[in-house]
Simulated scan of single mutants.
Amino acid sequence: MTDAVPDALTAWRRLASAPASAVLLDGFHALKHALRFGAEVPVAVTGDRAAALALADELAPDVRERLAALLTEVPHATYASLVPRPHPTAVAALAVRPSRAANLRALSRTPRTAPVVVLDQPRNLGNAGAVIRLAAGFGATGVVTTGTLDPWHPTVVRGGAGLHFATAVERLDAGELPPGPVFALDPEGEDLRGVKLPDDAVLAFGSERSGLSAAVRARADHLLSLPMRPQVSSYNLATSVAMTLYHWSATGGGPHSS
């Protein structure tokens, strides 16, 4: 065991002792994305440094040097003891969670060039992670959750593949939604295909089971519906968000618009 190993483990345990400010990056791709989008990553470990750097050579040469400087190889059993479920890439890191104040500034800043996605009382951690990954891909300003689900829960971060650091992610009350016209998805709403969504839209999605809460529905300036075959109950939450963000992008929004 080299001197670097005990130093890395000491740093890991120190950061892990403050879970409110430490974010587990589970796997190579989560670490890759976090580094690309400016995360502060004090410690990263791997059970196979050569394999991790080979992945970087193939998939992420832009962060290869930073990974080489950051990754400490530890025995595989040690790596496995640090994470809830070992990842196939045998890579894990701890990042510093962005401050709530910084995220709130990003969410409230106007004018905006991309919508904010609101997940109203979501229940499924994996779905929330998938939505954050989608939002990052479309260049959304941020993702807000209402209710009890923590959008920075390790399972959500795993589902988001480290892309929490590419957008502003916070939990807020229904009365604290960011500024902008609220477009809420509801079966009784106007067909999305006939509406042009503005860049400063706040796009609100209810849970698959119960739909929008009364508080968020009351905040809505517009109700929108997704095209759906009769007798189909609902779409998956992440699918609904993807369809709506794609519509926004295809009608003039998005990071590649002129």
Rank of each mutant, 00 (worst) to 15 (best):
M1T: 08
T2G: 15
A8H: 08
A11I: 00
S21N: 11
L25S: 07
G27A: 04
A30W: 01
H33T: 03
L35W: 04
F37Q: 06
G38V: 01
G38W: 03
V43F: 08
V43K: 11
A44Q: 07
A52Q: 04
A54Y: 00
A56T: 00
E58K: 06
L59E: 12
L59R: 12
P61S: 11
P61D: 11
P61M: 09
V63I: 10
L67Q: 01
A69V: 00
A80L: 02
S81V: 03
L82K: 05
V83S: 13
R85P: 00
P86V: 00
H87C: 05
P88C: 02
A95S: 06
V96R: 15
A101C: 04
A102T: 03
N103Y: 02
R109L: 13
R112D: 10
V116H: 14
V117K: 14
V118I: 14
L119I: 02
D120G: 05
P122N: 08
R123H: 10
R123V: 02
L125G: 04
N127G: 13
A128L: 09
G129V: 09
L134V: 03
A135Q: 13
G142V: 05
T148L: 15
T148F: 14
D150M: 05
P151D: 04
P151I: 07
W152P: 00
T155M: 13
T155N: 15
V156E: 14
R158N: 05
G162Y: 13
F165W: 10
F165H: 12
T167A: 07
A168T: 10
E170L: 11
D173C: 09
P178T: 02
P179M: 04
P181L: 07
P181H: 09
P181W: 02
F183Q: 13
A184V: 06
D186H: 15
P187S: 03
E188H: 12
E188G: 14
E188T: 13
E190T: 15
G194H: 07
V195S: 08
V195R: 13
D200I: 00
A201F: 09
V202N: 08
L203H: 10
A204L: 05
F205H: 04
E208V: 00
S210T: 12
G211Q: 10
G211W: 02
S213I: 01
S213Y: 04
A214W: 05
R217T: 04
A218K: 12
A218L: 10
R219M: 00
H222W: 10
P227H: 11
Q231T: 10
Q231E: 11
Y235W: 08
T239N: 15
A242V: 02
A242N: 12
T244C: 14
T244R: 13
Y246N: 14
Y246E: 12
H247C: 01
A250V: 00
G253L: 08
P255M: 10
H256W: 08
